[in-house]
């Protein structure tokens, strides 16, 4: 498994000049003192797929705040990721309807079969298993989101089969391909091209 726990500290997470420029353009309209930290972090994450160290400094500069005042919210809010997303992201729904229908055991099966714990990525960031928050599509329970698309009404065996397919190299494009004109219902973190 790939453990990114200390990435933010050990890797410089520097942005390439072109990434810096794109991000600077995206943040240009944000003014200091207007409570724009979350907006800025969202834009950075949308552009880059995650929030690298360099983006934090760049946002701090734009909003005239210290890096710490950006790093705080970036770590407090669970939707901001300080590690790169996997190519195929399995977000496990932690909601209570899923729970009373066997969700906890599904998590266990996914963790053991994929050999990564909740919040971690597999080898080469090919896939990862992260926590997803309930968005109220409980008629599909128990469910996971594969790159933001629902894979629902899972049995225990069905979740093991799903995990085996992902472990054996089937990506999200094959497991849950988005249709033309797909509507986003989960904040899907899709890995962008590497710099």
């Amino acid at each position: 498994m790939t453990d990114h726990t200390n990435d933010a500290l050990s890797q410089p997470g520097l942005l390439t000049p072109s990434q810096s420029q794109r991000l600077r353009d995206l943040l240009a309209d944000l003014e200091p003192g207007k409570g724009s930290v979350l907006t800025a972090l969202h834009r950075a994450q949308h552009e880059l797929g995650w929030v690298p160290r360099g983006a934090i400094s760049l946002i701090a500069g734009q909003l005239r705040l210290t890096d710490a005042l950006i790093y705080g919210p970036a770590t407090f809010y669970s939707e901001f990721r300080l590690t790169p997303p996997p190519a195929t992201l399995v977000a496990w729904c932690s909601g209570p309807t899923c729970r009373v229908l066997g969700g906890e055991r599904i998590k266990l099966i996914l963790e053991k079969t994929l050999d990564c714990e909740l919040g971690q990525n597999g080898p080469n960031d090919d896939y990862g298993l992260w926590l997803g928050q309930c968005n109220g599509t409980c008629e599909q329970a128990p469910q996971v989101w594969v790159n933001g698309r629902v894979v629902g009404k899972l049995s225990l065996a069905g979740s093991a089969r799903l995990a085996q397919r992902i472990r054996d190299g089937e990506g999200a494009a094959k497991i849950a391909p988005p249709p033309p004109g797909a509507v986003e219902i989960q904040p899907a973190l899709i890995r962008k091209e590497s710099p």
Partner: peptide, 25 residues
């Protein structure tokens, strides 16, 4: 429209206000 970022305590009104201000909620 302010978009949250995944924090349950931001449903508490003073936590929500802190979040609107761009701080930890």
């Amino acid at each position: 429209v302010v978009r949250g970022a995944g924090s349950y305590v931001c449903g508490e009104e003073t936590g929500l206000i802190a979040s609107v201000e761009g701080l930890r909620g």
